[in-house]
């Protein structure tokens, strides 16, 4: 079974991020860069499928030199091969452009299943996975918490408001991950050593046969960033006893905040 994982490097969710003075860019500063948590689930699921069915796992990412580390992490977990598209022309892509780049890479490869994170926790866009499937003209199922493959079909449980829906799809297909799908393994020390010797190709857009026209124009543009309104720390409710404090709280919620 040939498995492809789409992976993005993002600042860890524990880190502070800010914006530049002119509000035109996000300042990541020295935030720790990690594999997007939802993509870790994707790597883990691909590895499990490989363990059960044989085949190989290829990680594909669009990013800068630094993204090599994230791909190596995936290789250390057990993936076989990595491809990084690193091209200045791809620096400010919107979701559809990124999806076209990824689809262009995948078109020349054999694959049964593509697994992507439901979203990256930096731009929270939820677009790339489904769009890659569209550009490859294959079915997609988002927010998958459980999958089983049998008789050339994949059956997935996916999250919906208030529950789950089970959907079956023909293969090849693309699925996106939801928490609960699995618990990603840690890279072992031998895994990290092995990863250093695994193939990791870095390519430019022209290497995958994509020019500016093929990538499409940037149609979704961020014109400015701002910080959300600062929440002012409110009051700590004082009182002799817990009961006094609670009485004051409920009164405030009713009369001041008017939320009860």
């Amino acid at each position: 079974m040939e498995l492809i994982v789409l992976l993005k490097q993002v600042p860890s969710t524990e880190s502070f991020v800010g914006i530049s003075e002119d509000g035109k860019s996000v300042k990541v500063g020295d935030a720790k860069m990690v594999v997007n948590p939802y993509d870790e689930l994707a790597v883990e699921e691909a590895l499990k499928l490989k363990e059960a069915n044989g085949g190989s796992v290829t990680i594909i990412s669009v990013g800068s030199d630094k993204a090599v580390e994230a791909i190596r992490t995936g290789l250390a977990m057990g993936a076989d091969k990595g491809i990084l598209i690193n091209d200045p022309a791809a620096n400010n892509c919107d979701g559809l452009q990124t999806a076209r780049i990824l689809a262009a890479v995948i078109k020349s490869m054999p694959y049964d299943l593509i697994i992507a994170g439901q979203r990256a926790v930096d731009d929270d866009n939820y677009v790339v996975g489904s769009a890659v499937a569209e550009f490859l003209n294959i079915p997609s199922i988002a927010m998958v918490t459980k999958e089983t493959i049998a008789d050339g079909k994949i059956t997935c449980e996916k999250t919906v408001e208030g529950g789950t829906v089970t959907v079956e799809s023909t293969l090849p297909a693309l699925i996106t991950t939801q928490r609960g799908l699995n618990e990603p393994r840690y890279a072992s020390l031998p895994g990290i050593m092995k990863a250093k010797k695994k193939p990791l190709e870095t390519k430019k857009l022209q290497d995958i046969g994509l020019d500016a026209a093929g990538m499409g124009s940037q149609k979704t543009k961020v014109i400015s960033f701002k910080l959300p309104p600062e929440r002012k720390g409110g009051k700590i409710i004082s009182g002799e006893t817990d009961a006094d404090k609670v009485k004051a709280l409920v009164k405030a919620l009713q009369e001041e905040a008017k939320v009860i």
Partner: peptide
């Protein structure tokens, strides 16, 4: 953590 203003073309 951040809000983005996005223009659609």
């Amino acid at each position: 953590k951040i809000l983005a203003d996005v223009e659609l073309e």
